[in-house]
Simulated scan of single mutants.
Amino acid sequence: MRLQGKTAVVTGGASGFGAGIARKFVAEGARVIIADLNGGLARDRAAELGSAAIPVTVNVAENDSVAALADVVDRDFGHLDILVNNAGVTHLPKPLEEVGDDEFDRIIGVNTRAIFLAARHFVPAMKAAGKGAILNIASTGGVSPRPNLTWYNASKGWAITATRSMAVELAPFGVRVNAINPVAGETPLLKSFMGEDSPEMRAKFLSTIPLGRFSTPEDIGAAACYLCSDEASMVTGVCLEVDGGRCI
């Protein structure tokens, strides 16, 4: 029960890596606000996890929506111990000049602006409390980019730099900030990364991962639990690769 008594927000917590993080956090004793654009799926996930999970419909790219989430946390829980910026999107693999304006704007909104907005609305209370853990889910794409995913890769590189800068700035206030860089995983985004979900394309992707498998929500949940727990009280500014050795 490493997170006993702690309150956490997990954006994009209804599916994929976010669901794995939410599940692990509840198992370790935390109360978890599952903040997701898909309100129905968030409610289903919360029902699965029990009374410690609370669904909230949120558009992480919109200021007013994130502000409303912060109001819910303040009203119903009084404080926030852990913030996980997990929500993320990508564009289909294509030459960088062929990505459309709407695709680009969506990537910037969900993968970068959302971290900025969450910091705006949750960091002041963490600073006042003198404690807190923030975790940004970035990607190996921000470290070792794959071709034809340039603007997605760039957004995750931004998240990595933001993590390190946030860690330095917030350390004097007792707030830790880390990131996880997952390799492609068994999530709804996998097909989007590959362009097509075929045995041949899976084999091509797996050939770049030394351990020979995709990451899973459970892998990311376990790493997130450590980084957000008191066991990691001396860990900040770390961007942990959970990638089966891909970035070696």
Rank of each mutant, 00 (worst) to 15 (best):
G195V: 05
F104S: 11
G16S: 08
I115E: 05
G141Y: 03
H91G: 13
L41I: 07
A67C: 11
V168A: 15
E200N: 02
P124Q: 08
F122V: 12
M1P: 09
A222Q: 15
F122E: 06
S233P: 07
V73T: 02
A167E: 04
A8Q: 12
T112S: 07
P95W: 06
D105S: 09
I137W: 01
D102C: 01
F116E: 08
L135A: 11
R146G: 11
D105P: 00
E48S: 13
E98K: 12
D81T: 11
R43K: 15
A223Y: 01
T150K: 01
D197E: 12
C228I: 11
K6H: 02
K131M: 14
L170H: 02
R213P: 05
I108C: 02
E169W: 05
S51N: 12
P217C: 08
N178I: 08
T216Y: 00
I34P: 02
L49S: 06
A184L: 10
Y152K: 14
R106C: 03
G195S: 03
A129R: 15
A47T: 13
R120M: 08
G130S: 11
M166W: 10
H91A: 15
S155M: 08
L83K: 03
A179C: 13
G174E: 12
R176C: 13
V72W: 00
R246G: 05
P93L: 06
A224R: 07
G185S: 10
R113L: 09
V175M: 08
L80E: 11
A138H: 13
V177L: 10
R176G: 15
A30C: 12
A128K: 15
D230E: 15
N178A: 07
F104N: 05
I115L: 11
F193P: 02
I180C: 06
N148G: 01
R164P: 04
F17H: 04
Q4N: 14
L190A: 09
I108M: 12
L227S: 05
A61T: 03
R202F: 03
I248N: 10
A223K: 04
A68M: 01
V32H: 03
L69T: 04
G39T: 06
L37A: 10
G195A: 10
L117S: 03
R106D: 05
P147N: 13
S198V: 00
